Computed example of a mutant assay.
Amino acid sequence: MDTTPFTSPHYVHGYSADEARRLGDQADTLAALLHAGTAYPAGGRVLEAGCGVGAQTVHLLDSGPGVHLVSIDVSGDSLAQARARVNAQRPDARVEWHRADLFALPFEDASFDHVFVCFVLEHLKDPEGALAGLRRVLRPGGTITVIEGDHGSAFFHPESPHAHAAIGCQVRLQAAAGGDALVGRRLHPLLAAAGYDDIVVRPRTVYADRTRPALVEGFTRNTFIAMIESVREDALAAGLLTRAEWDRGIADLRRTATPEGTFHYTFFKALAVAPR
Rank of each mutant, 00 (worst) to 15 (best):
T29A: 13
L47S: 04
P189V: 10
G129T: 01
N222Q: 11
G64F: 05
Y11T: 07
H35F: 15
G44E: 15
A88T: 15
G64N: 06
A104D: 12
H164Y: 11
G24T: 06
F119G: 10
L241T: 01
R212N: 01
K269A: 15
I72N: 03
L236E: 07
A82C: 12
L173Q: 06
T242D: 09
L182F: 14
H10N: 07
G52L: 11
V12Q: 04
P65G: 10
G168L: 05
N87M: 14
A163W: 01
D180G: 08
A163F: 06
T29P: 00
D234C: 03
A214L: 08
E233K: 06
R243M: 01
E96K: 09
V95G: 12
L191T: 00
A27F: 05
R90I: 10
R21W: 02
K269T: 12
A17N: 09
T145C: 08
T57K: 10
A238S: 10
V86A: 14
R172M: 12
G24E: 11
G261K: 14
C118G: 06
V67D: 03
A251G: 12
A193I: 02
A165V: 01
G52N: 09
R276A: 15
R172P: 00
F224Q: 06
A20M: 02
G179P: 02
H35C: 12
Q56N: 15
P259Q: 09
A31Q: 10
N222K: 14
A176M: 07
D109C: 06
P213F: 06
V200D: 13
L241G: 03
H188E: 12
T29H: 01
A237Y: 01
P91E: 12
D198S: 11
A154S: 13
D247V: 06
A238R: 09
R185N: 07
S153E: 10
Q174W: 00
L134C: 03
A104V: 00
S71P: 05
A237N: 13
F263L: 14
S8D: 04
F6M: 15
T262C: 11
F119C: 12
L271Q: 14
A214S: 09
R276H: 13
R221W: 01
R212E: 03
C51W: 01
H10A: 08
H151C: 09
T242Y: 02
D113I: 10
A100L: 05
A49Y: 04
F267P: 02
A110M: 02
